[in-house]
Amino acid sequence: MKQFSILMQKEWRENIRNYKIYWVPAIFILLGITEPVVNFFLPQILESSGGLPEGAVFEFPTPPPEQILTAVMEQFQTIGLAVLILAYMGTVAGERKSGTATLLYVRPLSFPAYFLSKWVMASAISLVSVWVGFLAGYYYTLLFFDRVEGMELFQMVGTYSIWVLLIVSIIVAASAAMPNGGLAAAVAFAIYLILQLTDGLFGAAWSISPVKLPQYAAAWLADSPDSGSLAGAIGITALIILALLVFGSWISWKNKAKTKV
């Protein structure tokens, strides 16, 4: 516990001093803003660009605000995910590769505390980024379109946050397992694709699959997801995260010989 707080302080300083604590949320805010803004200005852009045939009259239906926020979440699922991978692929692997980890590893270091400090910091910044991103999206949707129930937004973001934690756990564990950041990114991305693919192909009946969490998150905006399925999916996800934490601590210890001396 004592080592954990020492290492947390180190992570905190690192993320402030390399500006990650600013630019990761900034990208999510940008993503959150883009969707409502583009949807709002799209009709005007199309009209003024003159790409429409002479005399054609198009009725652009105003999309419901729920649809805009779901689209924001889809942005997070693609670009947002790539940003998180980019930001944290090197969190353990980079330290070993550059050799900065060596002077930590030669001390009586608690590897669970070490891995956990990495995970907590990456999770905290990722969650805050997702939250302010949704908040920005919500603000612009309110401005240009219509109100979404605050409670519904809260439930959606809460459910989606569990999914984000799973993604971050995969990224940080991959960073601990792989020899460099690039390979960690490749592995994290491959795992993500395999999860999506497996669920897409065979998972129609797997109601408690973690991959369905984003769907359940979006479902809060329509009515509400099936509470049993949601609880099951959250439970499974929590177990997987726990397993990843144990694996990450172990593989960090196992890989300590790979630090550059």
Partner: peptide, 15 residues
């Protein structure tokens, strides 16, 4: 208790 100095010690540049 052991202290270790590698040949090319690397430090976190932001500390």
């Amino acid at each position: 208790t052991i202290g270790f100095l590698p040949q090319y010690p690397q430090f976190f540049p932001w500390l």
